[in-house]
Amino acid sequence: MSEPAIHPTAIIAEGAVLGAGVRIGPYSIVGPKVVLGDNVELVSHAVVEGNTSIGRDTRIFPFASVGHQPQDLKFHGEDSRLEIGERCTIRESVTINPGTEGGGMLTRIGNDCLIMANAHVAHDALVGNNVVMANYVGIAGHVQVGDNVIFGGTCVIHQFTRIGDNAFIGAHSMVDGDVIPYGMAVGNRAVLSGLNLVGLKRSKIEREAIHRLRAAYRQIFAGEGMLLDRAGVAAAQFKDDALVQKVVTFIRQAKRPILLPRDVQESD
Rank of each mutant, 00 (worst) to 15 (best):
G55M: 04
A125R: 06
E101M: 08
A134Q: 00
V30A: 11
M105N: 15
A46P: 09
A125D: 06
H76R: 11
E101C: 07
F61L: 13
P62K: 11
K74G: 13
L36Y: 01
C88N: 01
R23L: 13
I54W: 03
M105E: 13
V43D: 01
E49G: 09
A117D: 02
S28R: 15
M133S: 01
N118A: 15
V43A: 11
V121P: 06
M133C: 06
G85Y: 03
L126Y: 04
L36N: 03
P62L: 15
G37N: 06
Y136L: 14
T107R: 07
E41L: 12
V94N: 02
S28G: 15
R23Q: 13
G85F: 04
G128F: 04
P62R: 13
G55Y: 03
I90L: 04
K74R: 14
N130R: 12
I60E: 02
I84A: 01
G99D: 08
I29T: 13
V34N: 04
E41G: 06
I84P: 00
L126A: 14
F61E: 09
L36F: 07
G77D: 06
K33Y: 11
G31V: 14
P98S: 02
V22L: 14
N111A: 01
V137F: 00
D112G: 00
A20D: 14
A117K: 03
V22C: 11
A125L: 08
S93V: 12
N130V: 02
R59N: 09
E86H: 01
T100N: 10
L126G: 10
P32R: 07
S80T: 13
A64I: 08
D57L: 04
V40E: 02
L106Y: 05
E41S: 15
G103Y: 06
D112E: 05
A64V: 11
G104P: 15
N111H: 05
D57K: 08
D124R: 10
L82K: 02
G55W: 02
G21L: 09
S93C: 14
N118W: 12
K74L: 12
D72H: 10
